[in-house]
């Protein structure tokens, strides 16, 4: 008898709650646009925030309501944008996804340090501590804020103390650009060829050459050499206009500190180590 009561009581309570929930689900039903879910499925779902919305769900809602454009999802790339446009029956307006590029090649071997930094391993903190441990006040501090902020695992810290961007994985979301306290990382259109001045220093030539072997010393050799007149001085820094650059490479040959490189052959950690080894050898023979 006891068992029957127990079963009855529990069964009734369960039934009551079940019915209550069913009624509540009907009464408090919230209509959601099925397109929002469809868009949510289509986007990468990394919640990177590159679109300017707080997460992919918010972006999906904004796209469906017409507030945002499908092309605003930069990490999604062409496929995702086409898919969102298909769901909404919209025209595709594609903005080519750019790629993050680190504008500093002053690695551990070639850029001097003012002091050894043992504090919190964070670029922004190091930057505020006596102006950073690097002698160059424009160069990469190498503590990897960009590495940590990247939601796509596209940046890693190389052994030479500079971040290395994996161009396959980089979606051009731009989080590293805003994260870098020294504004060293810039977004460049993918697939475009040309040469780059891999330095952001606005210091005078003398100051630069003391701090870094490969910094732009504002000698203007490249500006004079460029047959396309694609290089201009922005203060104490040479800047190459990628629209005009025809990739002839004369500037790279003329550059005394070797600051200019072709896109796609930006020095890697292996190059940096090889250069360091060579320099050591030269010093040994001298």
């Amino acid at each position: 008898m006891l068992i029957v009561y127990a079963i009855l009581a529990l069964g009734l309570v369960g039934l009551l709650f079940g019915l209550g929930l069913a009624v509540a689900a009907k009464v408090f039903y919230v209509e959601t646009d099925p397109r929002v879910d469809a868009v949510k499925e289509a986007v990468p779902g990394a919640n990177c925030g590159a679109c300017g919305y707080a997460g992919c769900v918010k972006f999906a809602e904004a796209v469906v309501s017409g507030e945002a454009e499908p092309g605003d999802c930069i990490p999604g790339g062409e496929e995702t944008v086409a898919e969102i446009a298909r769901i909404l029956g919209k025209e595709v307006s594609m903005s080519a996804s750019p790629i993050a590029t680190v504008f500093c090649i002053g690695d551990n071997y070639r850029a001097a340090d003012n002091f050894i930094y043992h504090g919190v391993q964070d670029c922004a903190v190091a930057e505020n501590f006596n102006g950073g441990h690097k002698t160059c006040t424009y160069g990469c501090l190498g503590l990897g804020n960009c590495v940590r902020v990247c939601p796509f695992d596209a940046i890693r810290m190389g052994t030479h103390g500079l971040p290395v961007v994996d161009e396959e994985k980089c979606t051009g979301c731009g989080l590293c650009v805003t994260e870098c306290p020294r504004d060293i990382i810039k977004l460049l259109p993918a697939g475009q060829q040309g040469h780059l001045v891999l330095c952001t220093s606005q210091d005078r030539g003398k100051t630069v050459s003391k701090a870094c072997e490969v910094g732009c010393i504002a000698c203007k050799a490249c500006v004079k050499a460029c047959p396309q007149e694609a290089i201009e001085m922005d203060g104490k820094l040479a800047v190459i206009d990628l629209e005009k650059c025809d990739d002839c490479g004369i500037c790279a040959e003329k550059c005394p500190p070797d600051t200019i490189y072709q896109r796609g052959s930006i020095p890697t950690e292996a190059d940096a180590e090889a250069a360091a080894a060579e320099k050591e050898k030269e010093e040994a023979t001298a």
């Binding site: 369960g14 209550g20 929930l21 408090f28």
Partner: peptide, 15 residues
Amino acid sequence: LVIASLVQLVETVLR
């Protein structure tokens, strides 16, 4: 049973 259904209910109503 009460807690589980209550949380469900709260979620539906809150939404």
